[in-house]
Each structure stands twice: as C-alpha cells, then as structure tokens.
C-alpha cells in the first residue's frame, strides 16, 4: 500500500542527514540577494553617483563656458535625487512581518509607484536634457562662433520672425525623446528585474485566485 504524503514527510525527516544546516559564511558582511535590499543598494549607489556627477557637470560647465547647461543639468539631477530619496523611504518601510499576501501587495504597490514615477520623469528628463543642451550651447559665445562657421553663408528661413524649420526640428526631437523616455526606462527595468517582476505578478495573481475561492 502506498504511503500518504504526510507519512513520507514525517518519516523522511527522521533520517539524520535530512536537516543539516549549511555553514554560514561571513553572513554579516554578505551581500544580500533579497530584491528589496538589491533595490535599496541600487538606489543608494545611483543617488550618490548622480549627486557627485551633478557637481562635476556644474563646475565643468563654467570652465567650458556653457554655464546655462551646467545649471540646468544640476537642477535636473538634484530633482531626480530628491524624488528617488522619497521612493527609497517607502521601500524601507515595507514590513516583512505581515501575511504573504500583504507583503507581496505592499512590494508590488511600491514597484508600481516607483515605475510610474520614473516613467513620468523619463518622459521629461530626456527632452529636458536635449533642450538644456540646446539652451546651453545657444547662450554660449564660443558655440555661436562655431555655429556661424558651420552655417557659413547659409541663411536661416524665418516666418514671421520664427525660424520655422529649426523650431519644427526641435519639437520633433523633443517629441521623440518624450515618447521613448518612458519606454527606455521600462526596457531597462525589464532587462534587470524582468524575471522577478514576472514572478511577483504570477504569485499575486495566484493569491488573488486563492482569496476568491
């Protein structure tokens, strides 16, 4: 007669080697593989790097005589840092000591919020960078000289005082960057965390089904 799964479970663990705990190696200094810790680490490293980079860009822009670009980029980078610091706070507040459903929902809600925030920001960030570069170079005296050299005798077409083709070109590039900004962020996220996010969706769907039974 076949044994029940309860008996297999009970008798199987009577074997002396069935429950040998693995050795703990440098546990305290170990790099956590937990998704929340990974996100926290990634956020912290990114934010520090962005702050440092914003100062480097600011200082460099004055040396390169494009201070407008430097100041605009400094404002952008530090806005990104402030927004993501708020997101990080929410991540740290996720309690692991709740039911599995609640825990996964809390994490999923945080993920959705951070994706939405970053997608929204990405739609502005890329066009902003483009326009900041444009403004930076436009107000740079050295760039004006270079532009005059490049254009030579070419005359810009103006319609009622507006350089129509230039404006259209700028609008087109800005639109494309705004359109693809969010998609670029999503693609980046999918490459790095796609597997985990898919797993999370599946578990929550299963949980919802279990709750509805």
């Amino acid at each position: 007669m076949e044994r029940s799964i309860e008996r297999i479970w009970k008798e199987g663990f009577l074997e002396s080697d069935a429950l040998v705990a693995p050795k703990l190696n440098n546990l305290y200094t170990r790099k956590s593989i937990h998704i929340i810790d990974k996100f926290t680490r990634m956020f912290k490293i990114n934010l520090k790097a962005i702050v440092v980079f914003s100062f480097v860009v600011l200082v460099a822009s004055f040396f390169a005589k494009i201070p407008v670009l430097g100041v605009l980029m400094f404002i952008l980078f530090n806005t990104i840092v402030i927004v993501n610091r708020k997101l990080l706070k929410g991540l740290k507040e996720i309690d692991k000591n709740v039911s599995s459903y609640q825990y996964l929902k809390d994490f999923d809600n945080w993920m959705k919020e951070q994706i939405l925030t970053n997608v929204k920001m990405s739609r502005f960030i890329y066009p902003y960078i483009f326009l900041a570069m444009l403004a930076g170079f436009w107000f740079s005296s050295s760039f004006q000289e270079t532009l005059d050299e490049v254009l030579g005798s070419h005359q810009i077409y103006f319609l009622k005082g507006i350089p129509v083709f230039w404006v259209l070109g700028i609008l087109l590039i800005t639109g494309v960057l705004a359109y693809f900004g969010g998609a670029l962020y999503k693609l980046d996220l999918k490459i790095v965390y796609g597997r985990v996010l898919k797993k999370l969706d599946e578990i929550i769907a299963d949980m919802d089904e279990l709750k509805a039974e």
Partner: peptide, 12 residues
C-alpha cells in the same frame, strides 16, 4: 515561518 516564506517568495 512567516518571514522565511516571504523572503523566499521574493528572492533573486
């Protein structure tokens, strides 16, 4: 038990 399950569900 609760913590172990929650951790295992979200490990990479």
């Amino acid at each position: 038990y609760r913590l172990s399950l929650n951790i295992c569900l979200t490990l990479i």
